[in-house]
Design a binder for these strands. Structure first.
Lengths: 221, 221
DNA sequence: ATTACTAGTAGACGAGTAA
DNA sequence: TTTACTCGTCTACTAGTAA
């Protein structure tokens, strides 16, 4: 197993072009790129050479470093691991929390036709008049923040009855077998540990959810 | 700047799925994946938390770890760096060595019509009757080995004058402005520090190369 | 079982120096 | 200038232990 410090050094050498030919450098330049002393940089190069991860030609004016096949393989393993994390697997987020009782606003908004029509169009179902509120655990709050990077569906605001109804955004998700949506107002601030779920059916009725019951929300990016 | 050891730990957590939700683990399981003691694993987690790269919920039966947005960004930076090395840039190899005098076999083989025709077809030029032999420096020998992974052109053998002429392989390259090819017999062993170059013109004449002159061979994958 | 403390030690670090 | 040695220090590790 390659040591973290050695790996960092090997990667720095690759960035300098060590995979495509020899790189001329001094321990001083390498050390500044590693954030260590020149002595440590020198030690690292010796260590990499001993492990046959690089090949060296040391002269009085510096050294020529080439990453060997074995060294490149090591870097490619690292690369493959990261790619698996970020690319290969379908990115799926799991949020956990417990059912709570909201302010009843969800029920009201879900009864408004302009909202209903937009949810129907974007989520593919007629929203049940009422939302499920979930208080996320501390871990899921972090996951929740990550969802900001995903593509939310825009729900336009409108005016009616001498007032305006604000813009919202919505992210498709799933609770058990039921396709749902996370709804969030765009303008007004919303607690980061609360999730408001719109669904085609009443989830409390369907699954017998009561306050403080644990639920899992799946989001597939 | 994140420390190499912390980065290793963060990556291990990501492999376990820490980017898509919380991961339940114990210091013992983490330590075995890092190759350290459980104590060090514990310290790493504390360090990552202090840097706000992960969020933790520590219980008596283990801990739930979630990689924060900042932590994921750190990993993505790492990923981007490796991708630049292996994907983005056109992979170009540079080999260095000095001109030497070969055994004159190259000249003979290059005079044989079946070989000539195949070189013409695959490299796009009529080979000059004679090859340039190059002794690679120790660094370039390492680069030379890396070329094995590239796609070489097959040059078929043939029979003539009661003997057989062996199969060879060829890799397009460039010396200065001249498109050339590296030639290598397939069956017989060839010194790993010697490069035999076939070119459309006599390189010695064109550039006035003499023995011991330094030359650079560029290979673009 | 856990986590994370304290303690003692080993190894890594940077400064100085020689080649 | 370089590299890489020796040396003293201090960090970072593992072992043991408490919660």
């Amino acid at each position: 197993m390659i040591q973290p410090g050695d790996l960092q050094c090997l990667k720095a050498l690759a960035v300098m072009g060590g995979c495509r030919g020899s790189v001329r450098l001094s321990t001083l330049t390498l050390s500044s790129s590693l954030g260590t002393s020149p002595q440590t940089a020198s030690r690292r190069l010796q260590s990499l050479e001993r492990q046959m991860l690089v090949s060296r030609a040391v002269t009085a004016e510096g050294q020529d470093i080439t990453i060997t096949r074995k060294g490149e393989e090591e870097l490619r393993r690292e690369y493959a691991e990261l790619r698996r994390i970020f690319e290969e697997e379908p990115v799926q987020y799991t949020l956990r929390g417990q059912v709570i009782t909201g302010l009843g606003e969800g029920r009201y908004y879900m009864s408004l036709e302009p909202y209903r029509k937009q949810f129907q169009a974007s989520l593919g179902f007629e929203p049940y008049p009422g939302t499920l509120n979930i208080r996320l655990d501390s871990q899921s709050v972090q996951v929740r923040k990550r969802l900001e990077n995903l593509e939310w569906i825009r729900i336009n605001g409108f005016a009616a009855d001498h007032r305006t109804f604000g813009e919202a955004r919505c992210l498709p998700c799933r609770i058990r077998e039921v396709p749902c949506g996370i709804v969030l107002p765009v303008r007004s601030h919303y607690p980061e540990d609360i999730l408001e779920i719109v669904a085609p059916t009443g989830l409390r009725e369907r699954y017998g959810y009561r306050d403080a019951d644990m639920v899992e929300v799946e989001v597939i990016a």
